[in-house]
Design a protein around this nucleic acid. Structure first.
Lengths: 228, 228
DNA sequence: TCAAAAGTGTTCACCGTACACCCATGG
DNA sequence: CCATGGGTGTACGGTGAACACTTTTGA
């Protein structure tokens, strides 16, 4: 059977949907948008968009994120592709789910207001359209997995941060509490942080040392693993 | 901006491509097909097919695998979605890559001959069309990851097998050799195997005990982890 | 009797975990 | 002077890794 082309096959819409993670010193949050068009207008959803003719899905995901936050060069990773025929009642649409890690203070709030976007605590999400809750769930699993092999603080924290902030971030990601002595030890072991002389005085009388990710060492072959 | 529908967006072909793993007591193999149509006719490729109107990608992957091997109820998992606009020169096609684990002796050889399919050692693959080599690469990584949290022997080995066969399988997956004492210990620890009274006499004078996966224990909460 | 594969245990180093007290400072 | 959060070390158990000799039996 030799076919000259694929003309009898079904064409369909392909979308990307982004689970956008941020961290506010307390808990993990997601940036959700109020959908501005039918179907499911005015319901909360992940930010998404359709794949264009000459675009990879990575590019589409970046574009979608940029439109909402003004940010570029953001860490994003593909999570899973969702294909149930009836998942979008408007028209058959296959959606490639992504997640993004952003510093919650960096994004352009005007842009996100234009999109009726809002940060929600991961622990208190509104109902989401279609299969977006499943996307969020898979995104968290993927984020945990990434966290277990690579540090994620650079993407989610300010440039300088305290050990406690980093710990709270990891606790939020794993939804689990850690002992601070063991946490400090494990992180120090990986050798990815540079301890600064500066202290952050905002959170306690004593003050907490600030750290930065050590760019010198980054890219070199130092092993990292954070098993919970 | 309220849109009544998505009419201005691009529709495209969506395909699934399957990396089919088998094990022949020695090495991991892939079942590849000689492509029967243009573009790239007569080149080696993963078995694939287009997503139909009322089909999930999981169903499409099963259908494609069934067409080639006659097998059903095979373990399959989604790997990654490939979206480069020019990846298929015939027409814009997004492809959802899957991998499958099959017992190399189970499949319908007539069917696979009809498709000009052939088993290739993972270590000696022919050039593959499009981005299929990348798909294979990601599939192996995913398989390793699965192997580290769940036993994969049930899918790839005959029902009864020796400890040595299981070890060779794991060595093939990780492309790494293990100490047989440590291997036996680690696997025994997980408690997933039942040692039979029978021996396999084909591989040595002494004979090797046969094992089965212990269905009693399966599904119960026994932890499994195989870290290399 | 010998060749070929199978089976089996111990030791050691490292890592993860549990756990409690003192420190610095602003109010 | 005291309340609040920050910082630090040790002891123990479990796990992964290294390692070598004996057993069986068909030829």
């Amino acid at each position: 059977m030799t076919q000259p082309n694929y003309s009898e096959e079904a064409r369909m819409l392909v979308a990307v949907d982004c689970t956008i993670f941020g961290f506010d010193e307390e808990e993990l949050k997601l940036l959700l948008v109020k959908r501005s068009f039918e179907p499911e207008k005015d319901k909360w959803s992940l930010m998404g968009g359709f794949l264009r003719d000459q675009e990879t899905s990575d590019e589409a995901a970046e574009r979608v994120l940029h439109d909402l936050t003004g940010l570029q060069q953001v860490f994003m990773e593909q999570v899973h592709t969702f294909t149930k025929p009836e998942r979008d009642p408007g028209e058959r649409t296959v959606s490639i789910a992504y997640y993004a890690l952003i510093n919650i203070k960096d994004h352009d709030t005007e842009l996100s207001e234009q999109h009726d976007a809002q940060w929600f605590s991961l622990k208190d999400l509104p109902p989401l359209i279609f299969d977006h809750s499943q996307m969020v769930h898979k995104a968290i699993l993927k984020l945990r997995q990434k966290t277990s092999t690579q540090p994620v603080g650079r993407e989610l924290l300010p440039q300088k941060f305290t050990m406690r902030q980093l710990q709270r971030l990891y606790e939020a990601i794993y939804d689990e509490e850690f002992d601070k002595r063991n946490f400090t030890k494990r992180i120090t072991l990986t050798n990815i942080l540079k301890k600064l002389d500066e202290k952050d005085m905002s959170s306690s009388r004593k003050g907490a040392y600030l750290y930065e990710f050590d760019l010198e060492k980054d890219g070199h072959a130092h092993s990292y693993s954070f098993n919970v």
